[in-house]
Simulated assay, not measured.
Amino acid sequence: MRLIIVSGRSGSGKSTALDALEDSGYYCIDNMPAGLLPDVAERVLIESELVQPNVAVSIDARNLPSHLQRFPELLAELRSRNIRCDVVYLDADEESLHKRFSETRRRHPLTTDSRSLSEAIRDEALLLAPIIDLADLTIDTTALNLYQLRDILKLRLLDQPEPGTAFLLESFGFKRGMPIDADVVFDVRCLPNPYWKADLRDYSGLDQPIIDYLSGLPDVEEMYQDILAYLSKWLPRFAASNRSYVTVAIGCTGGHHRSVYLANRLGQALKPSLKNVQTRHRDLD
């Protein structure tokens, strides 16, 4: 059995995530009391006609605080039964969450006559802290539309070619902020920037003119070899510590040239040894 537990602050995209999982064949339960997790898993195992049933549940701050505090022991109980559990936490910055509620005119579940929307958004993170601490995969939805969120869920959760740790090589641009889900970050802004060459500016790091230009620079090759040596040594150690997901973020200024080139090249070099290697270019998507 595979169980995906989706959590996150209200407005972060939990409903979109459940819809995407349902479209992929998961039986989905929204706003489930955390205390019922073991009972639901047992019932699914007993009654399901599938050899490997897939279930996804959403757990949010509408739960009883006592149930949320018990989440670590509930998760441990599930895993002790050899149930594969993935805890996915969605979040966005407070400004974006505030804007989403204002635009949709929805009422935040924690707002009261004495608690403002801003206070409810902040308090929600405190209530969900036991889940945040145990999240296998954190996704920042601040800059994502629903289609991009669906694509990321498919890439990270559903498109793993083999069991084991799923590694993501992600390029990004510092001018749009660092990915909050990054486990390891490399800053490659010190390398020559193709943006300042008029004949290269409109290409990306996936295009041959950029590849030819960057691959011919000694500093770029040295940076590539250093990062590859580090990742080749240490990513297997991450896997040995039973991490389900590891994100390696590589950033340049705009996220179009240097970081894209290096993330793509590193991903190709690491695939033969690590198997579950995926590549994503945040600011090209």
Rank of each mutant, 00 (worst) to 15 (best):
L206Y: 07
V248F: 04
D207R: 01
V246D: 03
R258E: 08
V188L: 11
P218T: 05
A198Q: 15
L200H: 09
S259R: 05
A239D: 12
P218S: 12
S232L: 11
Y245A: 06
S259P: 08
A198D: 15
F186R: 00
I227V: 13
L200N: 07
R189C: 11
S241P: 02
N242Q: 12
H257F: 12
L228K: 08
N264Q: 13
Q208P: 02
G216N: 11
Y230L: 14
L228G: 03
W234H: 14
P209L: 00
L231N: 01
L191G: 04
Q225I: 02
L235A: 04
G255R: 07
A239T: 14
S204Q: 03
I227Q: 05
N242Y: 07
V188D: 10
P192G: 08
R201W: 03
G205Q: 06
N264P: 00
S259C: 14
D219A: 13
S232Q: 15
P209W: 00
A263L: 12
P194Y: 10
L214Y: 03
I211L: 11
L214Q: 06
L235T: 01
G255Q: 10
S241Y: 10
L217A: 00
A198E: 15
K233G: 00
Y245T: 07
L206W: 06
N193H: 13
P194S: 10
V260E: 04
V248L: 01
L217R: 03
I250N: 02
D207V: 02
I227G: 04
N242C: 05
Y224N: 04
V260G: 06
G251A: 12
L262W: 01
E221P: 00
W234V: 08
C252Q: 14
D199Q: 10
Y195L: 14
A240G: 14
C190H: 12
E221V: 07
L262A: 05
V248I: 13
P192Q: 11
D202E: 15
L200T: 06
D212R: 10
